[in-house]
């Protein structure tokens, strides 16, 4: 007897995305939708998409969504969550959004221990605007505004926002994962599940940073981009649980 063992999750609309071939956003959208379905929170989840390629997340993820101005996702999510504390509120933000223009909003929402979940997509560039240097662009990485590669004492060091947030007392769970291999995709899904659980349990601020390929702006094929993220990006941004005060077992049973 044949069984269907993989299909589109219920909370992912049947739509072809506008994302480029091999883009990590699409994988991540699916994972978020799968977790929402598995946790049974689809009818009480409100998402906050950012400015950037993922602004159209509401065309794909089938829950209520309210678009935030560039960088302000954490502040906007705070407003929603404080008015509707029994809803599950998440923001979905890129690296420029969360770690450059929206740094203040993010750090202070984290510091207040807002019961929100942040999905932080780190692709090391400003994707929608055409591949400029992002706060997370790694040293030496080419971008349209670092044509010879990022030079720290000229362009700044790659910002490690997740580690910075881990210092804030209001953060409960922070993990860095990637969507660059089957194993890491499954890891990312477990991390997102745990991040939402952290919120459901009312423990505090949770965030999952996801290294995500941007083949178009990296000027690599999708397969090469995934490999570059695995081999090079992880040197600056190692995949690990950065903070976990949930008291529940972590990815590796720790």
């Amino acid at each position: 007897m044949e069984k269907k063992v993989f299909e589109r999750p219920r909370y992912l609309k049947k739509a072809s995305t506008h994302y480029c071939p091999g883009c990590g956003h699409s994988i991540l959208h699916r994972l978020v939708a799968e977790v929402i379905e598995e946790l049974g929170i689809g009818e009480r989840t409100i998402g906050v998409p950012p400015a950037g390629c993922a602004v159209l997340a509401y065309d794909y993820i089938d829950v209520d969504m309210g678009e935030a101005p560039h960088g302000r996702g954490a502040a906007l999510a705070t407003g929603i969550k404080r008015v509707l504390p029994d809803r599950i509120v998440f923001s979905y933000q890129g690296d420029g959004d969360i770690a450059a223009i929206g740094t203040a909003e993010t750090i202070h929402a984290a510091n207040r221990g807002e019961r929100i979940t942040v999905i932080f997509v780190n692709n090391g560039c400003y994707g929608m605007t055409g591949g400029q240097m992002a706060p997370t662009t790694v040293t030496g990485q080419l971008s349209t505004t670092t044509p010879g590669g990022r030079v720290p004492l000229r362009d700044g060091y790659p910002v490690d926002l997740s580690e910075m947030l881990a210092v804030a007392k209001g953060t409960v769970y922070i993990e860095r994962t990637s969507v660059t291999s089957p194993k890491n995709i499954l890891r990312t899904k477990r991390a997102i599940t745990k991040a939402f659980r952290t919120q459901i349990d009312g423990l505090g601020f949770s965030l999952v940073e996801v290294l995500s390929p941007c083949p178009t702006n990296w000027k690599l094929s999708p397969v090469e981009a995934a490999r570059w993220a695995e081999e090079t990006m992880t040197k600056t941004y190692p995949l690990k649980v950065i903070k976990d005060l949930t008291g529940t077992p972590g990815q590796d049973g720790n």
Binding site: R72, V83, E105
Partner: peptide, 26 residues
Amino acid sequence: GTFIQAESEIAAINMVIGASMAGARA
């Protein structure tokens, strides 16, 4: 009632956007 001393004017107005989306008089 919710009162938040925001980290900036920018954060404050964006919190108001969120609260308004959620239906509150903000």
